[in-house]
Amino acid sequence: MLDRRSLLKSALALGLVGPGALWAADTPTAEAESADDLPPLAGTLTVYLGRGEGGLYDDIVAAIRKRNPDLDLRIRRGPSAALANTLIAESRAGVKRADLFWSIDASSLGVVAAQGKSRPIPASIQRHIKPAFRYDQWAAISGRLRTVAYNPDRIQAAQLPTRIMDFAKTDLKIGWAPAYGAFQSFVTAMRLLEGEDRTRAWLQGVKRQAKSYAGELGVVMAVARGEVDVGFANHYYTLRLKKGQPDANVALALTENDAGSLVNSSGVLLLDDNPLAGNFVRYLLSREVQSFLASQAYEIPMAAGIDLPDGLPDKIHPPKIDLTQLSDLKPTLELLRETRVL
């Protein structure tokens, strides 16, 4: 085992294989750049930006605009999957409007990259990304981690299973939010890693002791109230709740090498050779933007040398999985309906 930071890097290096091969391991790593050292952005740049952590991304866009008055930044917002479809359709029609695609959803990036519509991420950008998160065709910007939230008054961390599949064999009261996109990506990862039969059995097993909530914040709050012993949710719900309510009875645990500790990543695709697009990505990976994402959105920064959000577990063991496959949701939804979880 490694410490929190180094393990986060190296374990993910084993697991997160993007649409292309990992970048050459011998590419040296450089600390995140300061925005003060970046060239000013000037000219016209069109960015397709997937909706998600909307306010925070808007803040970043506004700050980049303010800092670069000669930049004519044109932003098109929309759901990531719809933007991916649009990019492909535009390309097929011989139209190219976007220089860059910025998405909170790696699978949407993968869909576009798989169509050969992206440019490789240059080494000059890659070197500022933690080696574990380097992909040939897209630049990872920040990540989200699946976690097990638990109530320390009801159960101790040491009593929790370290394999997500074993939760179906316990008598723990479990909270989950099956209609939630992040939960469905997690089940998709389980289906890809464990197979459909085992996932079906897991869903059936957990369902017997599960209580459903409308969203994953609801899950975490139910854990804190003691309504359930544990809950499945993305890491930032617990961290945000603890920020507002430091005494909330909830803590984070992780499973090992399985879907229970999946890390999903946002990222950027370069759609042409416009150097302005590459420099825009350097701003996204700058020390200032990465620190903002970590401190304000509790995202896991992908640039080297940036502190992780406070409150994450010391060790994480994410699974080996191709994030772009998480877009294959249809069989997952069928499974959730078949088991009457949805």
Binding site: R76, G78, S80, A81, D105, Q115, S327
Partner: peptide
């Protein structure tokens, strides 16, 4: 005409996910 163009291309996997069905617009 646009639909004919759409029909001529492979379906992105994410198209099956109804949550993101909405098309986009400038906001």
């Amino acid at each position: 005409g646009a639909l004919k163009l759409v029909a001529s291309q492979p379906a992105p996997a994410s198209a099956a996910h109804g949550h993101d069905k909405a098309a986009t617009s400038h906001q």
